[in-house]
């Protein structure tokens, strides 16, 4: 049965056809759209003209030029990448002890502890953002407590809502499970005999961690980092709801082009740049992962 060609096509053709139509074709159309003019009232202008009975193409490089003519879009990308890197690092700092604790706890508790990490992830992501909006609201308990404490030491009140801090907290909160799960999957596979052997040889707790656990877990960290980094890079809802006057990321500007400015070609240009960035990150990550496994 393995050898029969019809069976192979029976299996692979339907999903392939679907994804070619609804994933590959739209991506290609988006690339094509970067060379077209925006329609006067939105959408796209026709890509050909009838001139004297002849068909002429009406395409342009203007949209790409717009990307390069100032440095604001470069700065926008750098800013988004900055947010994504910070979020990834924070997720790592918070996710590592958690994943380690779950991986080192008894088999009986492990499933439950793991489920407890996934459970919040299964409640709607807007609901989770909203939860933080309540917490950060100036009349909320946290802000009041914090400002009460600040007043005691003589510092002025702070606002949490609409700040980069609020954005980062939310970004970390929403993406933390993406870091914990692959990390756990990695840590769980470690051979604990190695640690015991190191202990017998007189290595302290931290030494054992840095020399054994940490290097072995690098591939888990790489996987988790990719899973956090990429969705954060394309995020627009969190900056929209919590960002304040400075919280703007590439996702917001893409959304603006499609939903507000009605400039689809330029939105497509920004989307293509984001696509290339995401692909580069994935390739880099899998490259790193492979090299480690090879060692």
């Amino acid at each position: 049965m393995q050898g029969k060609a019809w069976y192979k096509y029976l299996l692979s053709l339907p999903p392939m056809a679907y994804l070619l139509i609804f994933f590959a074709a739209p991506t290609f159309l988006m690339f094509f759209a970067t060379f077209r003019y925006a329609g006067e009232y939105g959408g796209l202008a026709p890509w050909y003209l009838h001139e004297g009975g002849r068909l002429t193409l009406d395409l342009t490089l203007e949209n790409w030029q717009r990307l390069l003519e100032t440095d604001i879009y470069l700065r926008l990308f750098l800013k988004s990448i900055g947010y994504a890197v910070t979020t990834t690092l924070l997720c790592m700092i918070m996710g590592y002890p958690l994943a380690l604790m779950i991986a080192r706890s008894g088999h009986k508790n492990r499933d439950l502890l793991l489920l407890l990490v996934i459970l919040p992830f299964w409640s709607n992501f807007l609901v989770r953002i909203y939860a933080w909006m309540i917490i950060f609201s100036p009349a909320g308990a946290l802000t009041r407590m914090l400002n009460g404490a600040l007043e005691l030491v003589g510092a002025g009140p702070v606002t949490l809502m609409y700040s980069p801090t609020a954005m980062l907290v939310c970004l970390v909160y929403v993406h933390l499970p993406f870091m914990v799960l692959p990390l756990y999957a990695n840590l769980e596979k470690h051979d604990l005999d190695l640690l015991d052997a190191a202990q017998d040889l007189g290595a302290g707790k931290w030494r054992r961690f840095w020399l054994i656990t940490w290097p072995l877990s690098l591939s888990g960290i790489t996987a988790g980092s990719i899973l956090v980094f990429i969705p954060v890079l394309g995020m627009f809802a969190i900056p929209d709801l919590l960002g304040g006057t400075n919280g703007i990321m590439i996702g917001n500007v893409i959304k603006q082009q499609f939903m507000e400015s009605r400039d689809w070609p330029f939105g497509s240009v920004l989307s293509m740049v984001l696509t290339v960035t995401a692909v580069a990150v994935v390739l880099l990550g899998s490259r790193l992962g492979r090299r480690r496994e090879g060692r």
């Binding site: 999903p15 994933f23 159309l29 988006m30 990429i230 394309g234 989307s271």
Partner: peptide, 29 residues
């Protein structure tokens, strides 16, 4: 069961892309 090239790429790319990209490209489409 088979060593395929195109299908895994097509299956995995949508997972690896930021959601917004799929959203706007499907809107265009």
């Amino acid at each position: 069961q088979y060593r395929l090239r195109l299908l895994p790429l097509l299956v995995l790319s949508p997972i690896a892309m930021p959601d917004i990209l799929m959203g706007v490209s499907l809107l265009l489409f």
